[in-house]
Simulated assay, not measured.
Amino acid sequence: MSDDLLGRHDALLADLDGTLYRGPVAVPGAADAVRGATDRGVPTVYVTNNASRSPADVAAQLAGLGFPAREQDVRTSAQAGAAMLAELVPAGAAVLVVGTASLVDLVRERGLEPVTSGDDADAVIQGHSPDTGWRLLAEATVAVRGGAVWVATNVDLTLPTERGTMPGNGSMVGVVKVATGAEPRIAGKPAARLLTEAQAAVSSSRPLVVGDRLDTDIEGAVAAGAPSLLVMTGVSTARDLVRAAAVRRPTYVGADTSALTRPVDELTPGEKDGWTVRLDEGALVLTGNGADLDALRTLCPVAWGAAGDGEFDGPVRADGSAAADALARLGLA
Results as ranks from 00 to 15, higher is better:
Glu71Tyr: 07
Val175Ile: 14
Thr268Ile: 04
Ala63Phe: 06
Ala224Gly: 01
Tyr46Val: 09
Tyr252Cys: 02
Leu214Val: 05
Val144Arg: 02
Thr76Ile: 06
Ala255Phe: 03
Asp313His: 14
Arg185Cys: 02
Ala191Ser: 12
Val202Glu: 09
Ala123Leu: 02
Ser129Gly: 10
Gly146Ser: 12
Val115Arg: 06
Val151Gln: 06
Arg40Val: 15
Arg297Trp: 05
Gly64Lys: 01
Ser321Arg: 07
Trp275Val: 07
Trp304Val: 04
Thr161Ile: 00
Arg249Asn: 07
Leu195Cys: 05
Ala33Ile: 06
Leu195Arg: 11
Gly320Ala: 01
Asp131Ile: 06
Val34Pro: 08
Arg239Cys: 07
Val151Asn: 01
Gly290Thr: 13
Val210Asp: 04
Val222Gln: 07
Arg249Lys: 09
Gly288Met: 03
Asp309Ile: 13
Gly254Ser: 04
Gly188Ser: 03
Ala26Asn: 00
Arg75Ala: 08
Leu260Ala: 03
Pro315Asp: 12
Ile125Pro: 13
Ala201Val: 04
Gln199Thr: 13
Trp275Asn: 02
Gly64Tyr: 03
Asp156Val: 08
Ala179Gly: 11
His9Gln: 13
Pro301Gln: 11
Ala143Cys: 08
Leu12Tyr: 07
Met172Cys: 05
Thr276Ser: 15
Phe312Glu: 06
Gly36Phe: 11
Trp275Glu: 01
Thr132Pro: 08
Gln79Cys: 10
Gln126Glu: 10
Glu183Ile: 06
Asp156Lys: 02
Asn289Asp: 15
Ala11Pro: 09
Thr132Arg: 03
Leu103Asn: 06
Thr76Tyr: 07
Pro68Ala: 11
Asp10Asn: 08
Gly320Ser: 03
Ala143Ser: 01
Gly147Thr: 10
Ala187Thr: 11
Thr161Leu: 00
Val104Arg: 15
Pro114Asp: 13
Leu20Ser: 00
Met172His: 06
Thr276Gly: 13
Arg243Lys: 14
Asp215Trp: 01
Ala33Glu: 10
Ala307Gly: 02
Val142Lys: 14
Glu271Gln: 12
Gly111Asp: 04
Arg248Thr: 14
Arg278Met: 03
Leu16Gly: 00
Trp150Pro: 02
Thr76Trp: 10
Glu219Met: 12
Val178Asp: 12
Val25His: 03
Ala191Ile: 07
Val97Phe: 14
Asp156Pro: 04
Leu137Glu: 02
Trp150Ala: 09
Leu284Pro: 11
Ala198Tyr: 12
Leu106Pro: 06
Gly36Asp: 09
Pro55Ile: 07
Val89Ile: 12
Arg75Gln: 14
Gly181Trp: 04
Leu136Asp: 05
Val247Ser: 14
